[in-house]
Design a protein around this nucleic acid. Sequence first.
DNA 1: CACATAATACTACACACCTAATATATATCA
DNA 2: TGATATATATTAGGTGTGTAGTATTATGTG
Lengths: 133, 133
Amino acid sequence: MSRGRRKSTAKVSLGYLEMDIMPIVWRHGLVTVKEVFEELYPSRKLAYTTIMTVMRRLAHKGILEVDDSVVPFVYQPKVGSQELAAAVVDEVVDRLLEGSSAPLVLHYLEHGKISSAEQGKIKTLLRGRVKTE
Amino acid sequence: MSRGRRKSTAKVSLGYLEMDIMPIVWRHGLVTVKEVFEELYPSRKLAYTTIMTVMRRLAHKGILEVDDSVVPFVYQPKVGSQELAAAVVDEVVDRLLEGSSAPLVLHYLEHGKISSAEQGKIKTLLRGRVKTE
DNA sequence: CACATAATACTACACACCTAATATATATCA
DNA sequence: TGATATATATTAGGTGTGTAGTATTATGTG
């Protein structure tokens, strides 16, 4: 059945500030600490060095990649948003829901905002599904 | 669009051990520290007092309720698994995916195990959906 | 090149969570 | 009721994350 191992991104655990920074990085693709700092500043009055510390930690975790051959350093994401979100959420699903994602899916279908386009994708997926169980 | 407040369960944040304990509590409904300890022990060789400390913390967070009128104390969940999982995952979705749950839903429809019964529910839901967005 | 400016490195503190040892209180049994 | 077993309370160390100050290094400018 090859339900295979928890794939690549193992041992994922992110703090809230780390999570808040990631979307900015994804939007930019290549980004400096300063750019993240300035984009985040209006909503979160954090020190520049705070952002730097956190971005360094993200790099240390393998979630960001740093090019330190130029100054200021240029950061870029090593994993995509869906991949990372799925990895983080998997930890929760595995623990709280003991692996069954269905309740969560139902929850979001009921309460989340899903565009028509996405509903279409879902229907298509459902048609072609192999019923696992 | 009433992006409204995060409903009841506000400020949800659980550690991994806290999460590992919750399914046991849900299964029992009413449970003592000892029962949780014994059920968890085969897979996690933790001290009895460790479980006690964590369960007390969960109670402090309002996730468990304690009846200390009897000894040993009896704990019970104050929130259901789906509700709690959704609250925790919402934090991640709001941050990493900036609120759009669709990518996650698609991810689980593709990679998660969804029973036929659940697929049926999903289809029904989809049929009756108000297309938001 | 000297100085100002910008960036990075280092250090640190607070709090949450995991873990558990030790101390104290509560039941239970002979 | 005294001893024993059981449970709870207290205390604490280690690590991760949020936050940021200070020190050091690199860059740009006159």
